[in-house]
Computed example of a mutant assay.
Amino acid sequence: MTTASVTSKGQITIPAAVREAMQVRTGDRVEFVEIEPGRYEFIAATRPVTTLKGMFGKVRKTVSIEQMNAAIAAVAARAK
């Protein structure tokens, strides 16, 4: 298991072996995603968003921003 210490400023140094395995370089962004309460996953955010293009196939139906916002609001209202 690889470990790191937290500084008084809340910073950590990612161990070299982990940086190499995740292909994280100076200036790259990383994300901490909570996968369950008190447990986080460390993800390298090194790919540009444009690499997602075409990932889900062709668009079947064009949807406006207003329609998206209405759908999000409807789901949020049901979740309460």
Rank of each mutant, 00 (worst) to 15 (best):
Ala45Pro: 07
Val59Asn: 04
Val33Trp: 03
Lys9Gln: 12
Gly57Arg: 00
Arg25His: 12
Thr46Glu: 01
Ala73Tyr: 08
Ala70Asp: 15
Ala77Gln: 11
Ile72Leu: 14
Ala70Cys: 11
Thr7Glu: 14
Arg19Pro: 00
Gln67Ile: 03
Thr2Pro: 13
Glu20Ile: 03
Ile12Tyr: 06
Met55Asp: 13
Arg39Lys: 13
Arg39Ser: 11
Ala73Thr: 09
Thr7Trp: 05
Ala76Gln: 06
Gly57Cys: 01
Lys80Ile: 15
Ala73Asp: 14
Pro37Leu: 13
Glu34Asp: 08
Val6Asp: 07
Ala73His: 08
Ser5Cys: 10
Ala4Leu: 08
Met68Leu: 09
Ala77His: 11
Ile14Leu: 03
Glu41Ala: 08
Ile12Met: 04
Ser64Cys: 09
Arg78Ile: 14
Arg29Leu: 09
Lys53Ser: 10
Gly57Tyr: 01
Met55Ala: 15
Met1Ala: 15
Pro37Phe: 11
Phe42Lys: 09
Val59Lys: 12
Glu41Leu: 06
Val59His: 01
Val63Pro: 01
Ala71Glu: 13
Ala4Glu: 13
Glu34Thr: 05
Asp28Lys: 05
Leu52Gln: 14
Gln23Lys: 09
Thr46Phe: 00
Ala44Asp: 00
Met22Glu: 03
Met68Arg: 07
Ile72Ser: 14
Val6Leu: 15
Glu34Tyr: 11
Arg19Val: 00
Met22Val: 02
Lys9Thr: 15
Ala71Ser: 10
Arg78Thr: 15
Lys9Tyr: 14
Met55Lys: 09
Tyr40Thr: 01
Arg60Cys: 10
Glu36Phe: 07
Ala70Val: 14
Thr3Lys: 06
Lys58Gly: 12
Val33His: 14
Val75Gln: 07
Glu31His: 12
Ala74Asp: 12
Thr50Leu: 08
Ile14Gly: 00
Gly38Arg: 02
Arg39Cys: 03
Lys80Pro: 14
Ala21Ile: 01
Thr26Tyr: 10
Thr2Cys: 07
Gly38Pro: 05
Ala45Asp: 14
Thr62Trp: 06
Thr46Tyr: 03
Val18Leu: 10
Met68Pro: 11
Ala4Gln: 10
Gly54Asp: 04
Glu34Asn: 06
Gly10Arg: 04
Thr50Trp: 08
Val24Thr: 01
Met1His: 13
Ala17Tyr: 06
Phe56Lys: 04
Glu41Arg: 12
Arg19Thr: 00
Phe42Thr: 01
Val33Cys: 04
Val6Thr: 11
Arg78Val: 14
Ile72Gln: 07
Glu34Leu: 01
Ala73Ile: 06
Ala44Val: 00
Val75Phe: 10
Thr3His: 11
Ala74Trp: 06
Thr51Met: 12
Ile65Asp: 14
Gly54Cys: 03
Asp28His: 10
Gly57Ala: 01
Pro15Ala: 10
Gln23Ile: 08
Ala45Ser: 11
Met55Ser: 13
Pro15Cys: 08
Pro15Arg: 02
Val18Gly: 05
Ile43Gly: 04
Ala76Asp: 15
Tyr40Asp: 02
Gly54Thr: 01
Val75Met: 05
Phe56Met: 06
Ala71Met: 04
Ala74His: 11
Val59Phe: 00
Gly27Gln: 02
Ala4Tyr: 11
Thr3Gly: 08
Phe42Pro: 03
Ala74Glu: 09
Ala4Met: 11
Val30Gly: 06
Ile43Pro: 02
Arg39Trp: 06
Ala17Trp: 03
